[in-house]
Every structure is written in C-alpha cells, then in structure tokens.
C-alpha cells in the first residue's frame, strides 16, 4: 500500500513535468501552427540555470526560481526573434521556422555542452527530497490554473484563441499577430524551463536531458489533444502512470520504458488522433 502510494505520487510528479512540456508545445502550436522541437533543450537550459544560480551561487530558492523563469522568458522571446519572426514575415512555408528551430535546438545543446563539463550537474531540491514531488505538483497546478484562467477569462487570452482559430481573420480584427507569436514563444520557454528546473534535482542537469523530455511532452500532447489546455496535463499524467507501471510490473530492463511513449504515440495516432479531449 505504502509502495503503491509512493508510485502514485512519483508518477503524478513526472506527469506534471510532461504536462508542462506539453503545455509549452501547445502554447506555441495553437497560435502559430509551429511545432518547436527545441522545448526539450529549453528545459535543459532551465535546469542549468538552476544549477548555476542555486547550486553554484547558492541563491535562495524563490529568488533563483524567479530568475530562471525570467531568463527563460527572454530566451523564448529571443528564439522567436531570431529563428521565427523573419521567416513568418517573409511568408516562408511553415516548415522553414520548424527547421530553424531544429537548428536552434542544436545551438542550445552544443552551447551548454561547450560551457559546462559533460557530467551531470546537481540542482538542489526546493523543500527537501521528500517534498520535491509535492512541490512539482503544486507549482504545475498553479501554472495550469493560471494559463486556464488566462485563456478563459481574459481578453488577451481570447485574442490568443482567435489567432489559433484563424490567423488572417484575427489580424483583420486588429490583433497584433507578431506580439501574440512572441508572447507564445516566451510563455512556452517559461513553461519548458520551469519543467527543467523542477525535474533537475532528481535527474541532475545534463546536456542530453532535452530530447527524452521533448518526446515525452509531445506524446502527452497527442494523448491529451492539441485543442485544450487541460489535455496537456491529462496526457502527461497518463503517460507517466503508464511508464511507471511498466517499469514496476513488466519484466523488461528499465531502459525499455523509453519505448512506452512511442507505443502510446502510435496507438493514439492510430485510434484517436484528436486526443482524449477534443477542442471546444
């Protein structure tokens, strides 16, 4: 029983991480249609931010966390400025910014791998090792409630939705498209960086941590459905439970649990490509 409870809490915490990454994808896909593979690397950058500020410079946790978040917003905004906006303004096909972002993925990863030693870098827990899972769940809940309220209750959120539904029509309504795009990338980087910071005490900051997170986050997004914010979290939780149960009960090496996202991804694409929650 104790065992099962622990599994539940740890799966819920991983699910929240995947949910945050899925949210990062969603924030950018909805208004722009651009799928940004670099979200995993953003999480990695967030984790290294945590290492630098919290482990190396020993800043107090709340201050360090806030600084990482702000830094990530800037990174997201810069990424959009460099690799997305010039292409969108030129009217390039959707593939172009996606490829440019793939280039940025490698730039982020190699920049970190050049700046830090290739071994794992420790990041401290927020409130101690036992409470980290609960901390992750609490922070994720706050983020999702905030994002949900933003989309449902504010004019700015509605304008995001309008852009998601029809870019040209939204532009005619006087919505500033490039501002929405910039904001969505900043917010996406914020969510991804937060995920990286939260997960790093358990796995340590490492320059190769990005790609698995990018895969898990996207799988969560497909499971939950691209249309709804809650879907990202639901998909993340479902994936995390599937993974943990596989590791616990299936007689296979632990590494093979990395096959779970691929399997779920294929299943959902075959059987329910719209995800669990359909767009309203």
């Amino acid at each position: 029983m104790q065992d099962f409870l622990e599994l539940t809490v740890s799966a819920a915490a991983s699910g929240c991480i995947y949910g945050l990454i899925a949210l990062a994808y969603l924030l950018m896909i909805r208004p722009t249609g651009i799928i940004n593979f670099a979200v995993g690397e953003w999480a990695m950058v967030g984790a290294f931010g945590g290492y630098l500020l919290l482990s190396k410079f020993e800043w107090p946790y709340p201050l360090g966390m806030a600084a990482v978040l702000v830094f990530m917003l800037v990174i997201g905004w810069l990424t959009e400025r460099i690799a997305v906006r010039p292409l969108v303004e030129r009217g390039a096909p959707l593939l172009a910014p996606i490829l440019a972002l793939l280039g940025m993925l490698v730039v982020f990863r190699e920049a970190i791998s050049v700046s830090f030693a290739p071994d794992p870098h420790p990041v401290p827990y927020a409130l101690g090792i036992q409470r980290q899972s609960f901390f992750i769940i609490a922070v994720t809940s706050v983020v999702f409630i905030g994002v949900w309220l933003f989309f449902e209750r504010t004019i700015a959120g509605k304008s995001f939705e309008a852009v998601a539904i029809h870019r040209r029509a939204a532009a005619l309504m006087g919505i500033n498209l490039s501002r929405v795009t910039a904001l969505s990338f900043a917010a996406g980087a914020g969510a991804a960086g937060l995920a990286g910071l939260l997960v790093s005490p358990n796995v340590s900051a490492h320059y190769l941590m990005g790609v698995p997170l990018a895969i898990q986050g996207f799988t969560a997004l497909v499971i939950g459905g691209v249309g709804r914010v809650e879907g990202a979290l639901l998909g993340g939780l479902l994936l995390a439970f599937a993974e943990q149960l596989t590791v616990r009960y299936a007689p296979i090496p632990a590494g093979y649990a990395q096959g779970v996202p691929l399997l779920l991804l294929m299943l959902f694409l075959l059987l329910r490509p719209t995800g669990l929650l359909r767009a309203k």
């Binding site: 799928i35 593979f37 996606i98 790609v211 698995p212 990018a214 895969i215 996207f218 799988t219 497909v222 090496p253 590494g255 093979y256 990395q258 096959g259 996202p261 691929l262 991804l265 294929m266 694409l269 075959l270 490509p273």
Partner: peptide, 27 residues
C-alpha cells in the same frame, strides 16, 4: 499511423524511434 495525419507527427514518432533504438542496442 503517423504519415496519414497532417502535421509533423512523423518527425516526433521517428525521434522516439531513434531514441528507443539506441536504448535497445545498449540494453
């Protein structure tokens, strides 16, 4: 499963496949 849909599902599915392949080789 991934190519019949519009969008970039093939990219993600093959990303997951490539990652898994290395795991299978190592384990």
């Amino acid at each position: 499963p991934s190519a019949r849909l519009e969008g970039f599902y093939l990219a993600l599915a093959t990303l997951a496949l490539a990652q898994l392949f290395i795991v299978v080789l190592n384990e």
